[in-house]
Amino acid sequence: MKVDIILAGVGGQGILSIATVIGSAALSDGLYLKQAEVHGMSQRGGDVQSHMRISSEPIHSDLIPKGCADLIVSLEPMEALRYLPYLSKEGWIITNTVPFKNIPNYPEMSAIEAELGRLPHVIALDVDAIAAEIHSPRSANMVLLGAAASVIDLGEDLLRDGIRRIFARKGEDIVETNLNAFEAGIQFAKKRQ
C-alpha cells in the first residue's frame, strides 16, 4: 500500500487538521508516514502545501516527486492547480470550489474551472455550502476529507476513528459534527460517480 497526497490551501485555512486525521488513521494501521509542512512566513496568507506520504514500506524522501502524487486535496481551487506538476497522470484532484481572493490579480473563475475540467479525475465541491447545510460551518475541512476518502485508500472506518481521536478532547458534540461533515463529503462523492 502506498499513497502520496498533496494537501493545498492558503495560510490560515487549516490544511493541517486534514493531515492530522489522515496521519492518525495511517499510524493506527501500522503504516509508515512522512509529512512535510510549511511553517513561518508563508503562513501569513500565502500559498501553503503539505506533502503527505503513506506506505506499508519505509519512505525515503519527505517530498513527493513530480508526477507521483495520487491525489491533490485542496481547500481552494486555484491552489489545487498550483501543484499540477506533482499529480500523477492517473491522479485525482479533490478541491473546494470557493475561491480565496486575497490578491488583486486572482484569475477568472471560468479559467480555473476550464482547466480543472480538462483533467480526467476531479471532484469539485463547495465544502463551505455543504458544511453550512448540515449546520457544521466550521467542519468544511472534514467535508473535503470525506469527498477524498474513497481515493485515499485507507478505508472510511480508519478515517472515522482518526476523526474521533483527533477531536475527542473537544467533546462528543464536536466529534459528531465532524463525523457528519465527513459523511456529507462521502455522500457527495458517491452521488457524483
Binding site: R44, G45, C68, M78, L81, I103, Y106
Partner: peptide
C-alpha cells in the same frame, strides 16, 4: 528520465504572504 507529469498551470498566479 523524469516521471511523466502535467506541465505547470498557466492560470495560477503567485500568492505571496501578506500582513494580516
Amino acid at each position: 528520465e523524469a516521471h511523466p507529469s502535467y506541465p505547470a498551470s498557466q492560470v495560477v498566479v503567485p500568492r505571496p504572504p501578506a500582513l494580516c
